[in-house]
């Protein structure tokens, strides 16, 4: 197992390198010049050129890439070309809201979707099954920003139970943190609840048609034990896969949720950096997103061994 984990970790190096080259290349061909942003409207070409030199933007792309890669290997993501703040500081400021949002969304999604999917499969063809499927179709159809506005309007403006925007850091109190994260997580969860519930239902239906389930039922095993102890455990591998894939979708979804609820997370940092052509920030954030996706995939692969003893590495 440890050998496998080691190999997987090593295999991420070329992946990250390819990602780094791609990001750098894309930024190179994208129009925009941070020197112009910094200099402002009335700057003369000489001033803009001087700023470009200060930022190292006048150097050939391979030299810039070499400098950047060398710094990253030493754990230095550089400084924001706009604010001058170290990129690692900016990321440290912004990572908590995004991680909170993603974790809360995952927790809500899995804890709601899996029981719903199981229930739907167990009561196949019933009113409950149809209601769950309608909920899933609705969840898929509603974009995150629509759900977000609806939730903010209802629970923020009309009922005044929760704030309509903003984020309270967890170190300032769990309750304020929770209040700030509930609505964006709910808005983002609806899609994942729909996705995971449908997969859970389909996988459960397939599993429950297996011979060993019929045998267990013939032997008088109770429904709860049958569903959760036998069927769900065997149906878990596809569900875990979908949850893992969902994390990648969550990265995109979190950008929308962060904008709608004004959460100061990595998604908004990325958008601001793209609009401001803040290259070091874009490169670092995309690299972190890629690394986290690779890590999630590794965790998913390891979880297979937990749910299915036949799988080993």
């Amino acid at each position: 197992m440890m050998l496998y984990i080691g190999k997987r970790c090593l295999s991420t190096i070329p992946v990250m390198l390819i990602v780094a080259v791609l990001i750098f290349g894309l930024l190179y061909i994208t129009p925009g010049d941070p020197a112009l942003m910094i200099a402002g409207d009335q700057a003369t070409p000489a001033v803009v050129e001087r700023i470009r030199q200060q930022l190292g933007l006048d150097l050939p792309i391979y030299v810039r890439f070499g400098h950047w890669l060398w710094d990253v290997l030493q754990g230095d993501f550089g400084k924001s070309v706009l604010s001058g703040a170290p990129v690692s500081n900016l990321i440290a400021q912004r990572i908590q809201p995004t991680v909170s949002l993603m974790l809360a969304t995952l927790v809500i999604s899995v804890s709601v979707a899996v029981p719903l999917g199981v229930l739907s499969a167990w009561k196949r063809g019933s009113f409950i099954d149809r209601a769950v499927m309608i909920l899933c179709v609705g969840g898929f159809s509603l974009p995150v920003f629509v759900t977000g506005y609806l939730l903010a309007y209802t629970f923020g403006l009309q009922l005044s139970w929760l704030p309509v925007q903003g984020y309270a850091r967890i170190e300032n109190g769990v309750l304020p943190w929770l209040r700030g994260i509930i609505l964006p997580s709910l808005a983002l969860s609806l899609v994942y609840i729909s996705l995971i519930a449908r997969i859970t239902r389909a996988t459960m239906l397939e599993t429950m048609s297996r011979d060993y389930i019929r045998t267990a039922r013939a032997k008088g095993v109770a429904d709860r034990s049958l569903l959760f102890g036998h069927a769900l455990k065997n149906a878990a591998v596809p569900i875990v896969t979908v949850v893992g894939t969902g994390v990648a979708l969550l990265i995109g979804g979190s950008v929308v949720a962060e904008s709608v609820f004004a959460l100061p997370g990595l998604g908004r940092l990325t958008i601001d950096a793209i609009m401001g052509r803040d290259y070091p920030v874009i490169q670092a954030v995309v690299l972190i997103f890629s690394a986290s996706y690779v890590l999630v995939n590794l965790i998913v692969d390891l979880l297979y061994t937990v749910f299915d003893p036949r799988i080993s590495y």
Binding site: P163, V164, Q165, S259, V260, A262
Partner: peptide
């Protein structure tokens, strides 16, 4: 200064008194 890029969210924040 709280930067709220989305106009609808900014309006809601003023309406709610946040």
């Amino acid at each position: 200064w709280h930067v709220i890029p989305d106009g609808s969210t900014a309006l809601a924040a003023i309406q709610s008194g946040e």
